[in-house]
């Protein structure tokens, strides 16, 4: 578990801004002795909304609190904190958050997302994590043959981290690159193959079909693949992240989310809405610009960091 140990500190630092909104303010809200009233509940609602948690989700939590308060089950504002944590923390079973690995042969991880969310950087981080922390042999596949310099960017990362890369020229068929990568991964006995794809808006149907094609090609080359389909979301994105998750799921069946740029202005509260409405778990969080700046997602710590709350046991 030493692997997770830095999460909390880092995330706390990273979520500093969220903490300013959520922890400082919420914790002033949650002062013992303050009585719950409509004013309190509406302040609470405001704080949640500001964290991009989405009106539906916030309504649910606040209504739950209001119901308990009306029934006389809770009176003091400080009692709310536990309930809020419980509400937010529900629905994140551990098995959902673990990386699914192939029983034998290469595990294929397909990575997708809209433009500018940080896919390539996230892949570099993931490769670093899998290689150094999980001691796996890793290969990356440069199926983003569209954006200028994308292949170069991934090549540089691969070289720095010390993992294999399969690449074609710019403008090549991304599915063909993926095909070659699958063959190569099998031949070289690679543990994990990570496929980078070009950023695309979730509303561009033809490009979404291209993504489906990549997935299908991979599935034909390696049984059970892709074992993981990760969607990279920008933590600064608002409620549109829901639409992104929905459309990418329709095209390639997203199995997990990488929440990138969480070190930024990030609040990332939309992941709760995505979990609620689409049942897609967050698997990793990106916290910075170096390959080491990645962590597996831990809801308890995430929520604790969100509230700047009590120190979690490492």
């Amino acid at each position: 578990m030493g692997f997770f140990s830095k999460t909390i500190d880092k995330l706390k630092g990273a979520l500093k801004k969220t903490a300013t909104v959520l922890s400082t303010d919420v914790r002033t809200l949650f002062v013992p002795g303050r009585q719950i009233d409509d004013q309190f509940l509406s302040e609470l609602e405001e704080r949640f909304l500001r964290a991009d948690m989405g009106i539906q989700n916030v309504d649910r939590i606040v209504n739950e609190l209001r119901d308990r308060w009306r029934l006389g089950k809770i009176k003091d504002a400080s009692e709310c904190l536990g309930i809020v944590k419980e509400q937010l923390g529900a629905n994140w079973p551990k098995q959902d958050r673990e990386l699914r690995l192939a029983p034998s042969g290469p595990t294929v991880i397909l990575v997708a997302g809209i433009n500018g969310t940080g896919k390539t950087t996230s892949i570099a981080k993931l490769a670093w994590l899998l290689k150094n922390e999980m001691k796996k042999s890793v290969m990356v596949c440069a199926s983003d043959t569209f954006r200028a310099a994308a292949v170069e960017q991934l090549s540089i990362w691969a070289q720095r981290i010390g993992v294999d890369i399969v690449k074609h020229k710019m403008g090549a068929d991304p599915a063909a690159v993926a095909y070659d990568a699958c063959e190569s991964a099998k031949a070289r006995g690679i543990d994990i193959l990570i496929i980078d794809t070009a950023g695309r808006l979730h509303t561009q149907e033809n490009l979404m079909r291209e993504l489906t094609k990549i997935r299908d090609v991979v599935a034909r080359r390696i049984p059970g693949a892709p074992h993981e389909v990760l969607l990279v979301l920008d933590a600064t994105t608002g409620q549109n992240a829901l639409a992104q998750a929905k459309n990418f799921s329709l095209a390639i069946g997203v199995t997990g989310i990488v929440l990138a740029k969480l070190d930024g202005t990030a609040k990332g509260g939309v992941i709760f809405a995505i979990r609620d409405q689409l049942s897609i778990p967050v698997k990793f969080v990106g916290l910075g610009e170096t390959p080491q700046d990645i962590e597996t997602f831990d809801p308890v710590r995430f929520i604790d960091a969100l509230f700047g709350g009590e120190k979690a046991a490492a």
Partner: peptide, 12 residues
């Protein structure tokens, strides 16, 4: 500015 930005758009 990214039109998909969330609540934090005001801060930046």
């Amino acid at each position: 500015l990214d039109a998909m930005s969330g609540q934090d758009a005001v801060n930046s």
